[in-house]
């Protein structure tokens, strides 16, 4: 968490709160070692959803560009 705070630009309690929400949602897991807590993104949590949606947004944007070109060529 010490590593997160400078880059997140928010206070330690705020970072803790965000991480707690992410942990409950199953998107991150934590591992304690003494005073340190290590968090890691759970690949089965967040990644696939984001990737499928990102993929298909790009897919449809690209395909409809082709559709628009085709419509220009088509007779009314």
């Amino acid at each position: 968490m010490r590593d997160l705070i400078p880059s997140a630009g928010i206070s330690q309690p705020a970072v803790s709160q965000h991480l707690a929400v992410l942990r409950e949602a199953g998107l991150v897991s934590e591992r304690r070692e003494g005073r340190l807590v290590y968090y890691r993104v759970r690949p089965k949590g967040m990644r696939p959803l984001v990737d499928w949606i990102t993929h298909y947004q790009a897919f449809w944007m690209d395909k409809v560009e082709g559709l628009q070109a085709l419509l220009e060529e088509m007779d009314e």
Partner: peptide
Amino acid sequence: GFKAGQKEARFFEGAKQGWQFM
């Protein structure tokens, strides 16, 4: 209908190769 935790599987990798972006 995109579900959280849905497996990414081979499709995504395959799609990158198989679908040529115009």
